[in-house]
Design a protein around this nucleic acid. Structure first.
Lengths: 139, 139
DNA sequence: CGCTAATAGGTGCTGTAAATGCGAATTGAA
DNA sequence: TTCAATTCGCATTTACAGCACCTATTAGCG
């Protein structure tokens, strides 16, 4: 059972943004804070932006800001958005996969139920609950 | 959010074995039923065997049989065993990964909780609940 | 007020690493 | 001697990370 690194990194970015919701974080700053590639994070940022979770501004002084208060952004929703297109098992994919059971499969429903349980449990928390302390700007 | 195909196939194998617990299924038969590679399934079968979920017998008339009644094998336990070694996120891995947050990360606990919720939900069902009808041997 | 330069998000491509799937050869039981 | 699990090792696929470049916006200067 695995989440993509895409999701992992996206969560870290949001955690940091939630720490100081009033200011804009640039991808360069986030990449620096986490020791990751700037361009890579830019892709994730774009996904978050399209998902309506953050708002971005170009140009000097630009960057990304949470679109809503951190306390209104539920973790399950975030994960669900970032994991878009990731099928839990083959037969959950768009084309249904090549499973030969299919018709009489009673497992599918149980997996969906479990998936929902996973997301619901995450939805009990919001970004405000996991916000980081602002990174030390001592230098 | 994804389970490995390893787990997916393992579940399918168990579903079929649960349909006729008295007989032994060979990897060849299972591979044929699902249209998958025999050698590949053999690896999964071995894992199931080491996990104590099935018992195997070599030689003529051999194959695999459930180690316990289907109604006593919980799905969460099966998934947990087959997904062994799959870290939900980087920092769940053995070496802890390269996450820079780490110390003050409050996300980790929520993810663990959600993971448990996922498995607990699956544990509400047993193999008996998802057993397949025996495959039609009409041809 | 307009031009310019610097900032910062957005996108496509490519190399690399790891997971996956498969085949062949081996070992053990009947 | 045949059947079938077991083990080893290779090929393929996929996801990941990084690089280079493009576009848009802002700030500052003339």
């Amino acid at each position: 059972m695995r989440l993509t690194s895409f999701t992992d990194y996206g969560l870290r970015m949001l955690m940091l943004m939630a720490s100081a919701p009033e200011r804009a974080y640039s991808t360069a700053e986030l990449a620096d804070a986490f020791g990751l590639s700037r361009n890579h994070l830019a892709k994730i940022m774009q996904s978050l932006s399209r998902g309506g979770l953050i708002e971005t501004r170009r140009g000097g002084g630009g960057g990304a800001v949470l679109a809503r208060p951190a306390s209104e952004i539920r973790l399950g929703a975030v994960v669900q958005h970032l994991e878009q297109g990731q099928a839990l098992v083959e037969c959950f994919a768009g084309d249904g996969g090549n499973c030969t059971i299919h018709a009489q499969c009673r497992l599918k429903a149980r997996l969906r139920s479990a998936e929902t349980a996973f997301l619901s449990d995450l939805d009990r928390s919001t970004l405000a609950d996991i916000a980081l302390e602002p990174i030390a700007q001592t230098e």
